[in-house]
């Protein structure tokens, strides 16, 4: 008799295989390829966590890059070596963060970055998540602009537009994929519980969900805050990989990239966001020599945009997505639902 292997076991097996593969990769790949691999992991964390709001809950947030910025700056500032702070014009830590002679180690700094990003999400979520559809997207984009502007202008803390360099290199494949594993685990647990069902119900029909006992604001905030936490962690990992961060890196281009990755991969599935992130980064680095050879800088963004349009036209459910329901029919229903709020429910 064939027994189905429970999902839980798959997760453990998957984790073991993953770390075995990482070990091999770390021993065999050159530094450039390893760098790309780590980036794939970091972008995957970003897209998997973005999927929680944009995919499962149907809140199309464009503010994810802002949470990454918060995480990146937080962990950078916490871990920056004390002897270098003077030279780099960076403030020392206040007493409640360990005092002027302290620098945090990597793991707690990442956590702090995630927590701070979550706090920001909690703060802006209350007003922003009240909005619907496009309004929510635009408002969250506005939040991204605000955070980037702060990063540019708070020179005493962030060194302004020129950014911070000489950040200690802490991020490696193990850290990155450990975090990716944790992110996917958390999202998987959420999706397969009443929390995930509540999120999906809100995505499908908010009024019906509410009449069945789900308080929309609570669960929207929940998705937003959890997503922001992992975005913050991804930001921290990114800072400690590239060793230099500048405000504009967390702006429109990054926002666009992770959104494209998510849509191309498939929103609202476990594997979709990872597939999207890996595929698009692979494409980026495969095309990089061409871009440099032709001196056509921006070629890759152009291709991302084209890919996005092609996927939206021909496979709107994303590359790994199965068609569950005709997307067009679904949208008509949605609009009808939205419209009904303002006019007759007939």
């Amino acid at each position: 008799m064939k027994r189905r292997i429970p999902q839980e076991l798959w997760f453990v097996i998957g984790g073991l295989v993953l770390f075995g593969a990482l070990f091999v990769a770390e021993k065999t790949l050159n530094r450039y390829l390893l760098h790309i691999l780590i980036l794939m992991g970091i972008y995957s964390i970003a897209t998997v966590s973005l999927n929680l709001t944009n995919g499962y809950t149907g809140l199309f947030s464009l503010g994810h890059a802002a949470f990454m910025a918060i995480g990146a700056y937080t962990s950078t500032l916490l871990t920056f070596p004390v002897p270098l702070r003077e030279a780099y014009d960076l403030p020392r830590l206040p007493w409640f963060l360990g005092g002027p002679d302290a620098a945090w180690s990597f793991f707690p700094a990442l956590l702090a970055g995630g927590v701070l990003a979550s706090c920001a999400a909690l703060l802006i979520g209350a007003p922003v998540l009240r909005l619907r559809g496009h309004y929510l997207s635009v408002a969250s984009l506005g939040f991204m602009v605000i955070v980037v502007t702060f990063a540019k202008t708070l020179k005493g803390i962030t060194r302004g537009p020129m950014g911070i360099s000489a950040i200690p290199l802490y991020t490696n494949v193990y850290w990155t994929f450990l975090w990716l594993f944790i992110t996917m685990y958390v999202v998987w647990r959420i999706v397969n519980s009443r929390f995930g069902r509540a999120l999906m119900a809100l995505r499908e029909d908010e009024t019906a969900a509410q009449v069945l006992g789900i308080y929309p604001m609570k669960y929207k905030l929940f998705a937003f805050v959890v997503g922001a936490f992992f975005a913050g962690v991804a930001g921290g990992l990114y800072a400690h990989l590239t060793k230099a961060i500048r405000p504009f890196e967390f702006s429109f281009t990054l926002t666009f990239q992770i959104v494209v990755m998510l849509i191309v991969g498939c929103m609202g599935t476990m594997s979709g966001p990872v597939v999207g992130a890996v595929l698009l980064l692979a494409l980026r680095y495969a095309l990089k020599p061409l871009e440099e050879h032709l001196k056509l800088y921006g070629l890759i963004e152009l291709i991302y945009a084209l890919l996005l349009i092609v996927v939206m036209l021909w496979k709107p459910e994303g590359l790994v997505g199965r068609k569950r329901v005709s997307v067009r029919g679904h949208q008509e229903r949605k609009e009808e639902g939205e419209w009904a709020r303002f006019s007759t429910p007939r």
């Binding site: 499908e204 329901v325 679904h330």
Partner: peptide, 11 residues
């Protein structure tokens, strides 16, 4: 319940 059926269509 709803007159114009508000199921969660893709669940």
């Amino acid at each position: 319940t709803f007159q114009n059926l508000r199921l969660f269509p893709s669940l």
